[in-house]
Simulated assay, not measured.
Amino acid sequence: MLKKFKTMVRNIASYITIALTICILVHISFRSNETIDLSKYSTKGLNLDYNVNDGIDENKNLIASNTAPDFEFSPYLGKSFVGFKEALAFKESGGNYFSVNTYGYLGKYQFGTETLKMIGIKNPDQFLKNPSLQEKAFIANTARNKWILRRDIKNFVGKRINGIIVTESGILAAAHLAGPGSVKNYLRSYGLDNFADGYGTTVHYYMKRFSGYDTSFIKPDRLAKAM
């Protein structure tokens, strides 16, 4: 008798469970057809800003060399040669091919007219209007500097001067800033002769800022020309 009673209780519990499940499913089905009141989720009254801050003051005049914001231009290029030249260009001019600074230096990489002559460019106006020529000029000038500094690269890369490890890319960046002669003086004086340009940027700063890039792409060339 007790066994039959237990069986009956279990059956009743099963029926109740099934009935409750059906009720829940029917309720959910009806709710899914209801219109959701999105007004409950309104952003009215909230102070929202959809502008992405890129860290650049739009009112800043980027025409002057060495006044561009002091951060890495393209993190996705890493320490490649392209990363090197783009980071250097961004520091020089903000990456602006048509920039002319207050000292008359031209273009994306801020070349002086005398340097341009050494790599075969005699028309500064033509140079300023020609981005392709500016890229060729950067390659040619870097190759020329690498040839002039080839012994210093061999002798000083890996050594520590003024708290930084000397690298080839740091040497080439500093040569772009100050000329290969100033870089030789800096290295051979172990940092005592630290040239600064008209804006106060030093050889030491460029040696540190542009350290560790892969500049093996550039081959030393005493007679390198852009044209």
Rank of each mutant, 00 (worst) to 15 (best):
K4P: 11
K6D: 09
K6T: 11
M8S: 11
V9T: 06
N11I: 12
I12S: 04
A13W: 02
S14C: 08
I18N: 05
L20T: 03
T21P: 01
T21I: 15
T21G: 12
C23E: 06
F30M: 14
S32A: 12
E34K: 15
T35H: 11
T35M: 08
T35V: 14
I36Y: 06
D37W: 00
D37Y: 02
S39V: 05
S42V: 03
K44M: 09
K44G: 05
K44C: 03
N47C: 08
L48M: 11
L48Q: 08
D49T: 11
Y50W: 13
V52N: 02
I56T: 08
I56G: 06
E58D: 14
K60I: 05
N61D: 15
L62K: 07
I63W: 09
I63V: 13
A64G: 11
T67Q: 10
T67A: 06
T67H: 11
P75A: 12
Y76L: 12
Y76V: 10
L77I: 14
G78V: 14
K79C: 13
G83V: 05
K85R: 15
A89H: 00
F90S: 07
K91C: 13
S93N: 02
G94K: 05
Y97V: 02
Y97H: 10
S99M: 03
V100T: 13
T102S: 15
G104I: 04
G104V: 01
L106C: 03
G107N: 06
F111K: 05
G112D: 06
T113G: 04
T115S: 13
I119Y: 02
K122W: 01
P124D: 00
Q126T: 05
L128W: 07
L128A: 05
K129E: 04
N130M: 04
P131W: 01
L133P: 07
E135S: 08
K136S: 12
A137C: 07
I139P: 11
A140G: 14
T142P: 14
T142S: 14
R144I: 06
N145L: 05
N145Y: 15
L149W: 00
R151V: 12
D152F: 00
N155I: 00
F156H: 02
V157T: 12
V157D: 03
K159S: 12
R160G: 04
R160S: 11
I161Y: 06
G163V: 00
I165C: 02
V166Y: 00
T167P: 06
T167S: 12
T167F: 04
E168S: 11
E168K: 09
E168F: 02
G170V: 09
G170D: 04
G170K: 03
L172G: 13
A175N: 07
H176E: 10
P180E: 10
G181D: 00
G181K: 07
K184M: 10
N185S: 11
Y186S: 01
Y186F: 15
S189E: 06
G191F: 02
G191T: 00
L192Q: 14
D197A: 09
G198E: 00
G198A: 10
G200N: 05
G200I: 10
T202P: 06
Y205W: 08
Y206I: 04
Y206V: 00
M207I: 07
M207Y: 01
K208L: 07
S211E: 06
S211L: 00
G212Q: 09
G212N: 14
F217H: 15
F217A: 15
F217C: 13
P220V: 09
D221K: 13
A224Q: 09
K225R: 15
M227E: 14
